[in-house]
Amino acid sequence: MTLPSLNLLLQSILSGIFIGGMYSMIGLGLGLSWGLLRQINLAHFGFVFLSAYLSYHMVSVWGIDPLLTLLILPPFFFAIGVAQQWLLSRFKISPFNSLLVTFGFTVMIESLIQYVWTADFRKLQSVYGEEKFKIGGLFVPVPELLTLLLAILFAFGVWAAMRFTDIGKAMRAMAEDGPIAAAFGINQRWLSLMLSGTCVALASIAGVCFALTFTLTPTQIFSWVGVVFAVVMLGGLGSALGPLVAGIIIGVSEAIAMAIFAPSWAPIVSFSLLILMLLFRPGKA
């Protein structure tokens, strides 16, 4: 093992912060759905990729600015989230069964993507894709920075909404004790639909960020499941700020492992952190 130069270490940490932002962006909606709706929505990953492909299509075929897709796609995905929640509640799907059902949705979404855009690689080429600037000796790529800023913005936005608005308080009450919340006049059904729609809309924003940064292929959907699950569990189910902090911790830890030791150690990091959390702070994850 040789110690890396300071610049290499700092650049790697920056890279870790950026990938942490992506973990957080994907994990935010998943964690809210899991913690507040008690649904382990695996289809969340499918929605992220569907959104990424749709933004790719809008930019590449229709010539729309990628940032504009951030305004177009969320309402559409909000409606999908509402429909999904309606379906799950209509058939009274239990939390465990939601894992299986939404896994099925994910497979269907993957097949749909493969049917429309084929299994081949797709890369969103945009004016933002190659933008970067330099601070000292460190390079800062604009798409990754945008993802990080959006992750921070939405994490704090959702946190503030949950803490300071009536609807947020009602959602927390519903998650805490549904029947008692209902006794105080909280419309659980309506709130669940809104929350599910919001989570899937957040997935769509993560999808646009994903398309700006990564080359797309349908089967990548499942390669993000493990690490994002670790982020969500480490950050705390239903927490808005937790995934942001956990995402950055995991991203930076992976990056340091890659910079100092070997890149092949990186996947061990996220799950080691999760196991340590479960051992020393049981009940927090």
Binding site: L8, G16, W224, E254, M258, P263
Partner: peptide, 10 residues
């Protein structure tokens, strides 16, 4: 592997 930043830096 998802993040190639640290590998590129090395």
């Amino acid at each position: 592997n998802r993040d190639f930043g640290p590998i590129a830096a090395r």
